[in-house]
Nucleic acid binder design. Structure first.
Lengths: 202, 202
DNA sequence: GTCTATACCCTGATAGAC
DNA sequence: GTCTATCAGGGTATAGAC
């Protein structure tokens, strides 16, 4: 069981730098971000940045750890396991959309995790462990508590469930699906419900 | 109906440059790629690159159009519509894995499309139109030819089908799911089949 | 058309004053 | 701790020889 890293000490200047860094890194990517731009955006000199962080990599890692953990930890924590499936699953999907996908930072952060997954594998792994495993575990536990759903492979179904939500968001919001092949969230959720809740014959 | 752009004229030097550019851009990203590196990788001088392409952006666009169109056009074209659903859907999923996801270029190209979807919207749109709409259309047509499946919303189901495959590939291959939460392709396909092929009651 | 050489700017990182 | 000033190196793009 991976334990999330303890948050570094929070000082005002450090926070100020990270906020400026966030604005630049999330827009321009890692290689596209210059320390000059960060210092201007944060309103501090470059030397101040280098006194708080070892180098550009260190600043980037600290920023991504912060946004990954702070933004998504505990999003799926409080759920009503006694709710019937039709209610629980719909609420779970809507929680994803409102508490995760609609966050203004979600798309830039996800984009950056993907872009830099090769250069910074620890960040991609942190994201997987913090965000993805969290959601999957919750859904698997719910399936275990509701054997009437007859889920043969809970982990695979959880992958299908969240994978459908995430891929829909990426396609609609990042790859211009809204304009080229729009599909509303409600239609997606309705079809997901149909597939998961239909009564088996045997 | 979007018409794919006509391929530019193919000259040996141009091809040589594009091959070098591919090796660099797909590994280092747009901002992380220098024209020096491309010229070294392609074995031509920088000036030769600038005589064939307007600038770095022009080179990048030409490269991405080439890999997007050449690699993925027609992947899902020849399918047996008369096959029964259990056969057709499984073959479609396996076609995606073997003809798309297993291509060595697939992950880097997808990563780059996502990374640069804001700076180069045309490329993201080209990808959506060339790759995604192609697969979705095929599946929707199959559903139309097989009303016994009782698909209420074919487009939404197609989103779930391909979204599950793509998100699984991204999670397993790019976000270190193979190591942190492995889930085999067979398990994913089996569960997808279960959801789609179960007989409805009403 | 293709090369070598170079102009000019911006990069990450540091030195030293306060 | 924070600033200004500066370094060496590498960035895109171009000039001019052949």
């Amino acid at each position: 069981m991976p334990i999330p890293p303890v948050p570094d000490t929070v000082t005002p200047k450090r926070e100020q730098i990270l906020q400026g860094a966030m604005r630049v890194f999330l827009k321009a990517g890692y290689a596209g971000t210059s320390m000059d731009r960060v210092s201007a955006e944060a309103g501090v000199s470059k030397q101040t940045i280098y006194s708080h962080f070892q180098d550009k990599e260190g600043l980037f890692k600290a920023l991504m750890e912060k946004v990954t953990i702070a933004n998504f930890r505990g999003v799926f924590s409080t759920k009503e396991f006694q709710d019937e499936p039709a209610v629980f699953l719909r609420q779970l999907a809507e929680t994803f959309f409102t508490k995760v996908a609609d966050r203004p930072d979600y798309m830039p952060v996800l984009r950056l995790i993907v872009s830099e997954s090769e250069r910074f594998p620890e960040l991609a792994k942190l994201y997987t462990q913090t965000v993805i495993i969290q959601g999957r575990k919750l859904l698997v536990q719910y399936f275990a508590a509701h054997p009437e759903l007859v889920i043969a492979d809970p982990e695979a179904i959880a992958q299908i469930f969240f994978g459908s939500l995430v891929s829909h968001t990426i396609l609609q919001e990042m790859l211009y699906g809204k304009e080229l092949m729009p599909l509303s969230r409600d239609r997606l959720i309705d079809s997901l419900m149909n597939l998961l809740l239909v009564q088996k014959e045997d």
